[in-house]
Design a protein around this nucleic acid. Sequence first.
DNA 1: CCCTGATTCGC
DNA 2: GCGAATCAGG
Length: 173
Amino acid sequence: MNWTDERVEKLKKLWSEGLSASQIAAQLGGVSRNAVIGKVHRLSLPGRAKAGGSTAAAARPKRATSAPRAPNYAARSVTRTVTRTAGATALKEELAVDLTIDQELQIDRNIVLPMSRRLELTELTERTCKWPIGDPLKEEFHFCGNDSPEASPYCTFHARLAYQPSAERRRMR
DNA sequence: CCCTGATTCGC
DNA sequence: GCGAATCAGG
């Protein structure tokens, strides 16, 4: 694979967006993360903020200091709205999620869903969350990609959604 | 062990 | 210029 103008342009774009070298390599295809890093240097693109940082640390949105969680021992349901733009149309998706106590969600302000690494199908590995996000027919479709423990197909968050016992069953217990 | 970027150096 | 090997780090 050679560095066509197109590929270089894509590299620049993704790098500036804070994707890791390996993620960029996976999206470009046909190159290793070393190749990407090497190219980044040759282009003398700005490096990452701190050396040896982990997952797109520079681009990771910093979370506001967490607000105190309401001490509520009953399960409750929360509806939240996610807005995204598709073309000129703003779509709204509503997710109703059953919350139990001490779920590591932030009910805080806007940041409701755990950040995802927005991995492409080809970027998934044995230990990345394979929870699909978005419409498979659309460009922005991706997978969660967060760490999935113990060869689980999902991260801890999505495993709870995937394997959520029915409300009935929970009441029985 | 998993991952990250940085550097070196033979090609 | 390229990128695998290696290094340094979380």
